[in-house]
Simulated scan of single mutants.
Amino acid sequence: MLQGRCRIIIPHDVGLTILKGAVLFGLDPSIIKVRRSPLTYGVGVLNRYVEGKHPPDKMLVKDGTRWCTDVFDTFIASDQSVALGETVKRSYTPAKPSQQIIVIHIYCSEREQVGFISDAGVRKCGTLRLDVSGTESPAARREIQTLMQFGDTEIRAMAVDVATSRTVKASIDFLGQ
């Protein structure tokens, strides 16, 4: 079908080129300054329900306040340029003061624009786990500030309890899902 219209070039030793790039990166990771994210990454959150903007089946009423469930909070969009060490900052609050572990599911999609974690093509791809034991404080509302670092060969997470300035053990699991 394309015969005669275009030339297809298949370079020799493609595997060797990839291997050379991996070795150079291993020797000096700063050689790669920017990557493109292959997927859109984010989490599901509750947002204030807005009539006409949010679907009625996503509305949740809690303590007299209307919330929209399953909203996709985007960290990084697909095909977005991500600099080495670029961070995304979010704050999370334990549901109860006695809560010891906060588990946040990470979702991904090939699409750049995602509205809800229940949209077609969105799938759970990992879990962010924050161990907040040992950071208890008398504050009525505990805020755990989380930094996720993108742009490297893996996504890393760090977290701090804002009230006590104590480091919170943070880990991301993309294998166990």
Rank of each mutant, 00 (worst) to 15 (best):
T135A: 15
T153C: 06
E136W: 05
D73Y: 15
L16W: 12
R66S: 15
V122Q: 04
T127E: 15
T74V: 15
E154M: 08
W67G: 06
P94S: 05
G21A: 14
G134V: 05
V61F: 02
G44N: 03
I18M: 14
E112H: 09
T17H: 11
C108I: 00
V50Y: 04
L46T: 01
S37N: 05
P97S: 10
F25K: 08
D57T: 05
T74W: 03
G134H: 09
F25S: 10
L128H: 09
E136V: 08
I18S: 12
T127Y: 02
V45E: 10
Q100L: 15
V114N: 07
E112C: 08
T153W: 09
R142W: 00
S91I: 09
K124S: 09
L16Q: 13
F150P: 00
K58I: 00
G21F: 08
T17R: 12
G85R: 02
Y107A: 04
R36C: 01
D119S: 07
R66E: 14
K20E: 14
D57N: 15
T93S: 15
Y107P: 04
I102K: 05
R48Y: 10
D73V: 01
I106C: 04
K20H: 13
L147E: 15
P97W: 02
G134S: 10
P56M: 04
E110P: 03
A22G: 05
S98I: 06
Y92W: 12
G44E: 01
L130T: 07
C108K: 12
G151W: 01
G151R: 03
C125D: 07
T135C: 15
T74N: 03
T17A: 13
P97D: 08
C68G: 04
M59T: 00
I117A: 04
A77K: 14
V50Q: 10
K20C: 10
S37K: 01
V114Q: 06
G52N: 07
P138T: 09
D73T: 09
L84A: 13
T87N: 11
K124W: 04
P38S: 10
E86V: 01
R66K: 15
P55M: 08
K96V: 09
L128F: 06
S109A: 12
T93Q: 13
Y92P: 03
Q145Y: 01
L16C: 08
C108S: 15
G21L: 13
W67N: 06
E136P: 01
